[in-house]
């Protein structure tokens, strides 16, 4: 009984059914263990590995320079920016907006820099449903290649205060 003291010698041979089960479970665990690094190397979609320290002021400045250089229009008070293929692009987050709106080309690769001016935010690409954490003080670099044309949205998915639900940005792929 599990609530009473076991027999003096309880280190006993294991029954066959238990042995089989433990063997199966262990094998599965080892498969999973190998898949983790393997898929990081073989898989086409991984969490980014590049991060740098950055102050909010530095990141703000980099984003502003980026906007000034490539701005092509404006929507709802937010600049629309069309950077050249292969370039470094910036998406800044703050309570409660994403800045700027990015206009990208399908099939081209970009280095997307993410950071925050204030609290933690969450980059959640909709409707693709890809999610990355955005922290103040860190420049998180995603190497991205849009594969479908259309309009995509970025909703914030880390609670960042009362206006959290209004924090929606946009990415246009043509």
């Amino acid at each position: 009984m599990s609530i009473s003291v076991p027999e003096r010698i309880w280190w006993k041979p294991v029954d066959k059914s238990e042995k089989i089960w433990v063997g199966l479970a262990l094998t599965w665990c080892i498969v999973m263990f190998i898949m983790m690094p393997l898929w990081h190397l073989k898989g086409g979609q991984n969490a980014p590995s590049e991060t740098y320290r950055v102050t909010p002021a530095q990141f703000q400045k980099a984003t502003q320079e980026f906007i000034d250089k490539y701005k092509v229009g404006e929507e709802k008070g937010t600049a629309i920016v069309a950077p050249p293929a292969g370039s470094d692009i910036y998406l800044n987050s703050m309570m409660w907006r994403w800045d700027p709106i990015l206009k990208l080309e399908k099939g081209k690769t970009y280095r997307l820099h993410l950071s925050s001016m204030d609290l933690q935010h969450g980059f959640s690409l909709y409707p693709q449903n890809m999610n990355f954490q955005v922290l103040p003080g860190y420049d998180y670099v995603l190497t991205i290649t849009p594969t479908t044309a259309g309009e995509f949205y970025v909703q914030c998915n880390e609670f960042c205060g009362i206006g959290h639900h209004m924090m929606v940005g946009k990415i246009i792929v043509s």
């Binding site: 907006r97 999610n131 909703q155 998915n157 880390e158 959290h164 639900h165 924090m167």
Partner: peptide, 18 residues
């Protein structure tokens, strides 16, 4: 893609509605 800790999936007051 519905996020947790999110008050309004109608996104009232947001610049864009999903």
């Amino acid at each position: 893609g519905i996020s947790r800790r999110h008050w309004d999936i109608a996104f009232t007051g947001a610049p864009f509605q999903l």
